[in-house]
Amino acid sequence: MSAIAQPRVVRRHRSWRKVLNTTLLYLAVALVICPFMFIFVWMLLSSFKTGVQQTAWPPLFIFEPTLKNYFDVFQRVPFVDYAINSVIVSVSATLLGLVFGLPAAYSIARWRQSKLAIAILTSRMVPWISFLLPWYLLFTRVGWVDTYQALILTHLIITMPMIIWLLIAFFEDIPTELEEAAMIDGCSRLGVFLKVSVPLAAPGIVASSIFSLIYSWNNFIFALILAGRKTMTLPVAVYSFMSYTEVNWGGITAAATLIALPVLILTFAIQRYLIKGLALGGVKA
């Protein structure tokens, strides 16, 4: 309204308001983000506290930090072994998921195999406990409890549908003209898939691999039952810290930090793919 009256003054007035508005906006954004970040901050802070600082009241925000908790984690439990187990399982399950999932996703996208897509989506809906129970009974018979193959096979339940689901969208985005051109040049369907489509879907492959890697790394319930001492993964290990001797919050928070850190770093490193992957996988559902 005032825009009509005094353009000059208003412009200045506007720019002042704009600054205020922007400031308020960023303040609001910061305010919104704070609670979501606070948990991580508290985890980090607690991991540098001694036992006494841990139980102080009111809780300490500023204190003399100690690294003892981190040394404890490595000294008191075979943390490195657990980490290696986690890596073996999540990487293998992701690679296998790609081997099986890539052609399937391509096929669903190219030939609009919506029934298969629905089957994949359905499998994502089934709670893991109903896979875990039969798998546990079967592995019990064949002596596979506490083996890598058991964990990798069950983690495939997590990785394969996720990879397929995310990749369908990426393959759909690849223009068919490119593939047809390659075919006219004498390329076979397999050749087209490997030489044209897969490279073009590379960002999607990265995104879906990272997603599946993280979800496999994070998985708790399968390893809780199917892993023993030899194959115990990190989430189960950190849970069992809680019941080691007394409740040692320093050790628990340090271990939690160490487990979550690779995930957080990975998320940051490939953020742009991840956000696209999430958006595509979700919106096109």
Binding site: Y136, F139, T140, G143, V145, D146, I225, G228, S240, M242, S243, Y244, T245
Partner: peptide, 19 residues
């Protein structure tokens, strides 16, 4: 060394599996 409840779950799971 685990808390009793966890120990019981662990032992039963692994021994049922004939570990």
């Amino acid at each position: 060394q685990l808390a009793q409840d966890q120990n019981r779950q662990k032992v039963q799971t692994e021994l049922t599996a004939k570990n």
